[in-house]
């Protein structure tokens, strides 16, 4: 299947979350799939000590012709994948605009050290106001049902592919999933991927 053209040149995607949630795994899958489909991509992940429970994000800039700097310009995110609600809002504050499409995993990760978490409903309402479309994918809850929160990022990957915001199909990811999850792991991860596609279809 030929990839469709990009909706914009360059096209900017941000995946934000909390250190340990697996944003780097997601951005790696998406980046590799895009390169395989002939796009020029640049992926910047938060590195360093923030990986330890701090706010983290991966910026993916996609082009059909040239290599751009990896970090998104202020207010220029086309798509936001929020692995955590407050982190989704934090990203919109800096990089969002009226046309940003947002997908959020609504389960909070509480900051440590007695920092209060804001009212979740208010956070969600604000995200919706700051996005052109907002879809919720309960990735963590579904992953816990599958027995391990680790599956939440592959569930989200399925949701991203199902949301039709990338010039990529499920087929683009199959070889990557097969390589990353050998043997029995593949089945469970494919179930997680399909679950994500299913959730976004109903969102």
């Amino acid at each position: 299947m030929r990839p469709s053209k990009l909706k914009k040149e360059p096209y900017s995607i941000i995946i934000s979350g909390v250190g340990g949630q697996g944003n780097v795994l997601l951005s790696g899958f998406i980046g590799a799939a895009l390169v395989n489909e002939g796009f020029v991509v640049s992926v910047a992940d938060t590195f360093g000590v923030s990986q330890r429970g701090g706010s983290v994000s991966s910026h993916i800039k996609i082009s059909e012709r040239t290599l751009y700097s990896s970090v998104t310009l202020k207010g220029k995110a086309d798509v936001l994948i929020g692995m955590e609600p407050v982190e989704a809002l934090r990203t919109l504050v800096e990089f969002g605009n009226h046309n940003t499409i947002t997908i959020v995993n609504p389960r909070p990760v509480y900051p440590t050290g007695g920092v209060a978490y804001p009212d979740l409903d208010e956070v969600k309402r604000t995200i919706e106001k700051m996005s052109s479309q907002t879809k919720y994918v309960s990735a963590t809850e579904e992953a816990l049902k599958m027995g391990n929160p680790i599956y939440s990022n592959v569930i989200l990957l399925g949701a991203i592919v199902g949301a039709d915001i990338l010039p990529l199909s499920k087929e683009s990811f199959m070889p990557l999933l097969e390589e990353r999850f050998p043997g029995k792991m593949l089945d469970t991860n494919l179930r997680a991927f399909n679950k994500g596609m299913e959730l976004i279809a109903g969102a």
């Binding site: 923030s50 429970g53 220029k76 934090r90 504050v93 920092v115 208010e122 604000t126």
Partner: peptide, 26 residues
Amino acid sequence: QPRDSAYEDLAEEGAKLVPDRPINMC
């Protein structure tokens, strides 16, 4: 100006909701 003033106002309101997330050990 990367985005219009209406969005900047939304962003300012949104920023007030966002707490710090201190780094921590695992």
